[in-house]
Design a protein around this nucleic acid. Structure first.
Length: 272
DNA sequence: AAGCGTACCAACCGCGCAGGT
DNA sequence: GACCTGCGCGGTTGGTACGCT
């Protein structure tokens, strides 16, 4: 069973197979597709990288704000957060959170108290001066902390800087910057139809270019969510990328749920 | 140019849950 | 109810690109 980075050839095989047959059974898929990978690995590669319309890098300010707001609301429920950010995988959001957004979201006092709980009476400055970074790391039952601290003493400098920052930000839940009508399709995917619809032929040259004609949500949106439904169906309903699984929530509950996080309701005006 | 430290991300691992028998 | 299997999720890690000295 092969591990590690995926080759272009493997990507093409996986993409072509799923494009034609869907993925009714991940554990059987690699064998049928001629891949020396486990089903989990195939699923991960598909969900995080090969899936059509998946976006990479360059998170917009709106996406960042949405992630921060949603994380404050949902916690580490990355799949739920990803479900509200079209084109982003849970893995990518999780990585982005840990590398860019984590310190911005956690209130300063909570960071300090949390660290105090972890290390007892530990004093960063004193310990730093005593040059006992590995001992500090061992005190913390947090492998990422150990990893970072043990990499270099600068780790605690970073921590000190975080504590000095007053960046308990305003939590803005700016919804998707894209038009809701562009994020769904009336055409059901072959996967949703059962995954074996041979009417969907594999293009002779299966590359990422082959999927550009597909609209956002082709592989992920429920088939009943059509373009017409995705905007506004009645006066008291609103399209909600952040909303319930059926694509709609009432305006009342929408406001009730999100006002706690300081919503800029005005940014939603374009959706009404 | 070389060595080192850091940040980042793709991918792996283990666990829990759901559905089937 | 017990067991099995497949799937999805969240935590973690290895590899590497990049920047600094």
């Amino acid at each position: 069973m092969k591990k590690g980075a995926w080759s272009e050839e493997e990507d093409i095989k996986l993409r072509a197979f799923i494009y034609r047959y869907g993925h009714p059974n991940w554990s059987e898929l690699p064998k049928l597709a001629g891949l020396s990978r486990c089903g989990k690995s195939c699923r991960l590669r598909w969900m995080n990288y090969l899936r059509p319309n998946i976006k990479h890098g360059n998170f917009t300010k709106e996406e960042e704000d949405a992630i921060v707001a949603l994380h404050n609301k949902l916690g580490n429920k990355w799949s739920m957060i990803a479900a509200r950010l079209p084109g982003r995988s849970d893995n990518e959001i999780k990585n982005y959170w840990h590398t860019h957004l984590k310190n911005r979201s956690i209130p300063k006092d909570h960071q300090i108290e949390s660290k105090k709980e972890q290390v007892g009476s530990f004093e960063p400055a004193k310990a730093y001066n005593e040059g006992c970074m590995m001992n500090i790391a061992n005190l913390i039952n947090n492998q990422d902390g150990i990893r970072r601290v043990s990499q270099s003493a600068k780790g605690w400098n970073d921590f000190a800087q975080i504590n000095n920052q007053d960046e308990v930000g305003i939590l803005l839940a700016v919804l998707s910057s894209e038009s809701p009508s562009s994020s769904s399709t009336s055409e059901p995917s072959p996967c949703l139809l059962g995954g074996s619809d041979n009417n969907y032929a594999v293009p002779s040259d299966v590359t990422s270019q082959s999927f550009q004609h597909m609209t956002e949500g082709f592989w992920t949106d429920p088939p009943f969510l059509t373009d017409n439904e995705s905007i506004i169906s009645s006066s008291d309903k609103v399209f909600s990328p952040l909303g319930s699984t059926d694509g709609f929530i009432s305006q009342d509950s929408f406001q009730e749920d999100l006002m706690d996080d300081v919503i800029l309701w005005s940014t939603m005006s374009s959706y009404f």
